[in-house]
Design a protein around this nucleic acid. Structure first.
Ligand SMILES: [Mn+2]
Ligand SMILES: [Mn+2]
Ligand SMILES: [Zn+2]
Ligand SMILES: [Zn+2]
Lengths: 145, 145
DNA sequence: AGCTAAATTGGAATTATTCTAATTCCTGAA
DNA sequence: TTCAGGAATTAGAATAATTCCAATTTAGCT
């Protein structure tokens, strides 16, 4: 049974893809669905495992292709921490990430508007920042151990 | 001719290594020297090329080993931008990075103390951040094109 | 000088990601 | 509806940064 998105997610998904003239395929919907369906930051490999439960024929290449497409459409965010495998995040609000070096878990960290504008103001004259990445690492919640 | 550090760099280098019971070898000094010697953000490969001019026998593994050691001693910083090869930075002050997506160049961006403390204050109760990374990407100086 | 642990070396291995060429699937005219 | 043509998916090979390994060399000590 193909992954079922809520009807509001399905609308977001369909229009974001159509906007770019791309096709809303079942693989893309499923990759999107498994990322939305859990508030974590899965790797491509994690996503592959989850997608296969719904669409067993799916290939690794397709997962990578879909992820690239979804990121390109602004439906999910790509999160790079150090040298570890890329992770994906359904939270589209501006936020930072905290990685617990003990558990490996990644947490969303809200950025208030005031701090956000001060951060943006760091960019020097003549430079135009399209993207900003803020990440912390250290020891997380005690429950992480 | 082995790379010649200035005597003040040499002191920093020797004491940082001795502090950890590590040996100040000529390979380590050379890797440190070529990073200090240019205000850019070289990759391991760039560093390998530069080191070989001074110590032609040096292996790639040694460059990686030395870099790990120097980072561990706090003599250089490791800079990860997206999925591209790790870069190394001799600027030890807290600062952010800006990558021009057109030229690939990486610039240091100063962080004022006020903004820095607001950024640090984002970390939630119960988390202890040992490290923070802030990077921007976008279009850089016109001279970059 | 000789001993021992630390560091270096060349090459193989690892691993996340990308590429390729063949196949399958949509979509939108006819 | 049919079907042609482009888009998407697929399996597997290729790539590239980094790490690992076993053998050799070196630095620091007695
Ligand atoms: Mn898996
Ligand atoms: Mn090179
Ligand atoms: Zn997130
Ligand atoms: Zn820097």
């Amino acid at each position: 049974m193909p992954y079922s998105l809520t009807s509001s997610s399905k609308d977001t998904f369909n229009s974001a893809l159509r906007e770019k003239g791309l096709r809303p395929t079942k693989q893309r919907a499923c990759v999107y669905g498994v990322i939305l369906g859990k508030r974590d930051h899965p790797t491509a490999d994690d996503i592959y495992d989850r997608v296969k439960r719904h669409l067993p024929g799916t290939s690794f290449a397709t997962v990578y292709n879909c992820l690239e497409t979804l990121v390109g459409c602004g439906l999910v965010r790509q999160v790079n921490m150090d040298r570890s495998p890329t992770r994906y995040c359904p939270n589209l609000t501006p936020h930072a990430h905290f990685r617990c070096t003990q558990s490996g878990k990644i947490y969303d960290v809200e950025i208030d508007n005031n701090t956000l504008s001060l951060i943006q103001a760091l960019v020097p004259e003549g430079f135009e920042a399209e993207n900003l990445d803020l990440s912390f690492s250290g020891t997380g919640k005690p429950s992480d151990n």
